[in-house]
Simulated assay, not measured.
Amino acid sequence: MFAPYASLLRQPGALKFSVSGLLARLPISMVSLGLVVLVSAKTSSYGLAGTVSAAYVVLRAVGSPLQARLVDRHGQHRTLPWIAGLNAVALGGVVVAVEVDTPLVVPIVLAGVAGASSPSIGSYVRARWSHMLGRRPELQTAFALEAVADELLFMVGPPVVTFLATGISPNAGILVALGCGLVGTLVLAALRDTEPPAHGRGGGGAALTPLGWSALLPVIAASVGIGTLFGAFDISVIALATEAGATAWSGVLLAITATGSMISAAVLGTRTLRKPPLTRFRIGAVAITAAMVPLPFVSHLGLLVPIVFLTGLTISPTMIASVARVEEVVPNNRLSEGIAWSTSALVSGIALGGAVAGQVIDGHGANAGFFVSLTAGALAMMLAWSGGLRAVAPRGSTP
């Protein structure tokens, strides 16, 4: 089963950029949750915690495509060290601001700066795979491998954040994420052999071609809905575990969700996929929404375990299809940016879901937050099926 993955990692330089990319994107599974835990511990309000976390993820969503455009134009080795340094300073500033009890606007602003400067590592690693493999069939296996890596992070990150927060200090999880992200990003930037060529003035390449919004829009719009579903789901799980007097288990439940997603990604990467990416994405949006249906009516943590695991099984196939759709319609000199737009749509939805569900939970209890997830999933289904199929453009051309 794992032979296709072993073959991928034997490609020259692949293991190095894959491992360093794994370390560099550890913050994606820790920072948002860490902010919720830190701020809620200091203020006893999930609404305020959701606001600070939303500032981080909204500015991350806004900044990622612009950041990716710079990386495509000037190269990863030139831009990533500066971006990672700014992110580390801003994220450290959030921790200090919360600990010394500054006015709420200070951590909100710093969280926004940290989000805007958060390196879009997943986009850059996937761009390296695309540069290395072209449109060979192994590219879908590579995307599945990266989905496995993402879910491994979400399996490990949430329990680490919650256990560090409850066992050491509410800020410990964020500080660990900061260190891992900075080191991993600097190492990735130093790996020049597998870096995609720069296409802008900094790399001497041709002018950037149009991105192809007509093909991307259905996936990007639906990704906002799916992200909203995720954001509401995460904060609802945390609140439900807290209501049950078992806050530390919120991370475990989120890790179980990630485990289901990781298993489905690992299996998917060994299969020959016959349906086109957009069709698979549409089916995935339906599956994720269906998985949300029982959650508003379950309050026992033990009963929640199999439900969140089954929910996880639907996640990776949908996300892999999303990236594959972007890769097949976006010109190769804007691939990082194209993937970043898709990721930003997801992240902006997460911010919206966390903020809305936080307010709903404050007023009506933890289970009510899952209704936000269910509503967002229904919207994502409609958006995913709203656009028609589009022919695939040749690599390097304008789609």
Rank of each mutant, 00 (worst) to 15 (best):
residue 384 A to T: 12
residue 193 D to W: 00
residue 210 P to N: 13
residue 3 A to H: 15
residue 29 S to L: 05
residue 39 V to H: 00
residue 146 E to Y: 06
residue 57 V to I: 09
residue 63 G to L: 02
residue 31 V to A: 10
residue 78 R to S: 13
residue 123 S to K: 04
residue 57 V to P: 00
residue 286 V to Q: 08
residue 399 P to C: 07
residue 59 L to T: 08
residue 177 A to H: 13
residue 265 A to N: 10
residue 320 I to A: 06
residue 13 G to T: 07
residue 179 G to R: 02
residue 15 L to P: 02
residue 86 L to Y: 00
residue 378 A to E: 10
residue 149 A to F: 11
residue 222 A to K: 04
residue 327 E to I: 12
residue 301 L to W: 11
residue 398 T to S: 12
residue 345 A to P: 05
residue 394 P to D: 11
residue 47 G to H: 06
residue 335 L to C: 03
residue 170 P to D: 10
residue 177 A to C: 13
residue 194 T to E: 13
residue 131 H to Q: 09
residue 80 L to Q: 03
residue 107 P to V: 12
residue 129 W to I: 03
residue 4 P to N: 11
residue 160 V to H: 01
residue 149 A to G: 01
residue 255 A to D: 07
residue 200 G to M: 12
residue 386 S to A: 10
residue 303 L to H: 15
residue 172 A to R: 07
residue 338 G to H: 04
residue 353 G to E: 01
residue 298 V to M: 04
residue 149 A to V: 15
residue 52 V to C: 02
residue 50 G to T: 00
residue 321 A to W: 08
residue 35 L to G: 04
residue 236 S to D: 11
residue 145 L to H: 00
residue 92 G to D: 02
residue 308 V to C: 13
residue 222 A to F: 07
residue 51 T to P: 03
residue 27 P to E: 12
residue 5 Y to I: 05
residue 393 A to Y: 09
residue 10 R to P: 08
residue 169 S to K: 07
residue 89 V to L: 07
residue 265 A to Q: 06
residue 370 F to A: 11
residue 242 T to Q: 03
residue 87 N to E: 12
residue 324 A to D: 14
residue 213 W to M: 02
residue 127 A to N: 12
residue 178 L to T: 11
residue 374 L to V: 01
residue 22 L to C: 02
residue 33 L to I: 15
residue 61 A to K: 01
residue 241 A to T: 13
residue 95 V to G: 08
residue 120 S to M: 14
residue 154 F to N: 04
residue 134 G to E: 08
residue 257 T to D: 14
residue 224 V to L: 11
residue 256 I to T: 08
residue 168 I to T: 08
residue 74 H to T: 11
residue 202 G to N: 10
residue 46 Y to G: 00
residue 333 N to L: 14
residue 286 V to S: 07
residue 103 P to Q: 05
residue 227 G to R: 02
residue 121 I to E: 09
residue 318 T to I: 00
residue 258 A to I: 09
residue 103 P to Y: 05
residue 324 A to I: 04
residue 182 L to I: 10
residue 54 A to D: 02
residue 104 L to H: 13
residue 351 A to N: 07
residue 355 A to L: 14
residue 55 A to I: 03
